[in-house]
Simulated scan of single mutants.
Amino acid sequence: MTSVRANGVDLGIESFGRQDDPLVLLVGGTTMLSWPDALCERLASRGRRVVRYDLRDSGASTTLDPENPAYGLRDLAKDAAALVEVLGARTAHLGGIGVGGMVAQVAALDHPDAFSALTLVGTRPVAPGPVDDDLPDHDRTVMAALFSRPQPDWTDRDAVAAFAAEGAEPLGNDPAQARATAARIWDRTPSTDPAVHQANQLGTVFARIDCAPRWRERLGELDVPTLVVHGRADPFFPVGNGEALAAEIPTARLLVLDDMGTALRHSAADQVAAAMPTD
């Protein structure tokens, strides 16, 4: 792992595969660890240079004030396009998961010359906030149960890992994987500030950034090979969001994973890697 300077900020990255192979750039959601090691390794073994990275205010990327970000969604999209150039590639296959999937959609729309294919995982075609009438919103029962839990001490590694594991099953996720990932995120957080740890674990910074203007109405402009992956057990962005996204991107293929919730499972690495476009 290292960091590179792109679009005026330092972005934490990790690379897999050979530098001369076609680039697959994976946007963290919000940290790079949203993309399982196993998937990155499978893609690299298939002749791809895989680079996963942390969004701003997460992981090893520039962190200023995750409670008051001074940038918007379009800046994050510019980060992705700038990173392609910094990494020495002409174009990249861009993948985004969760909030990173929103970044990826906007990046491909605003910087079409930088991206040759898309993989959008567990995301939706609108920003955080009130959802469009035709899209299923968060499962209220699950969200109420999750957000009513006492918060952990965000500076206590074991407490944070236990908190993640306890919340995994309602989100359709594997508790052991959630615990391990939370511990790794905690270890990579270069701060003792509880707000920074919380932002890294929950992606809270993304709910505070400016995501205007809307981009859903522009999805028909996308003409690159696109894979939309969604979990049937996802209560945060229910599967109807992925179905709508795939229906509105002319080149999209939808892959629904029955045992997936909000997180990509390690066990799905082979299936997802095989389905991703080769652009």
Rank of each mutant, 00 (worst) to 15 (best):
E14H: 02
D234G: 10
A212L: 07
V50Y: 08
R232V: 13
I209F: 02
V256W: 04
A80H: 06
R157P: 07
V103I: 15
F147L: 14
L146K: 07
D193L: 04
R56S: 02
D139H: 12
Q105Y: 07
P213V: 11
Y53N: 01
M1I: 01
A183R: 13
F163A: 11
I185V: 15
A246I: 07
A92H: 04
V103T: 12
D10K: 02
G129Y: 07
G167F: 07
R48T: 00
G47Y: 03
S267I: 09
D37T: 12
A117P: 09
A89E: 03
L245E: 09
D259M: 03
P225E: 10
Q198C: 13
A82I: 01
V205P: 02
G220T: 12
D110K: 01
L264Q: 06
G220D: 14
G12F: 00
M102F: 00
G167T: 07
D193K: 04
T63H: 01
P175W: 11
N7W: 00
G98S: 15
W186D: 14
L33C: 02
V99G: 15
E248P: 04
R179D: 13
I13H: 00
A127H: 12
L83R: 00
I13W: 00
T189Y: 02
P112M: 04
E169P: 05
V229I: 12
R188V: 03
H197Y: 04
P190N: 08
L73I: 06
D259N: 13
H230L: 04
R214V: 12
T119K: 01
T181C: 10
V272A: 11
R56V: 00
N68M: 02
P22W: 08
H197P: 10
A6D: 02
R140C: 03
E166S: 11
T119E: 10
L171T: 10
Q19H: 14
A89C: 04
R184Q: 15
S116N: 15
G96I: 03
L73N: 06
D174A: 12
A233E: 09
Q271C: 05
F147Y: 13
V205Y: 08
H230V: 11
G96Y: 01
R52T: 01
A183S: 15
F16I: 01
R5P: 00
V239E: 12
A182Y: 10
D139N: 15
N241A: 07
R184S: 15
P125Y: 03
R188K: 11
A168G: 13
Q271I: 10
N7Y: 01
T181D: 10
C211Q: 12
P130R: 06
D21V: 04
D79H: 01
A252T: 08
D134F: 12
G88D: 04
D153H: 09
R214C: 08
A176S: 14
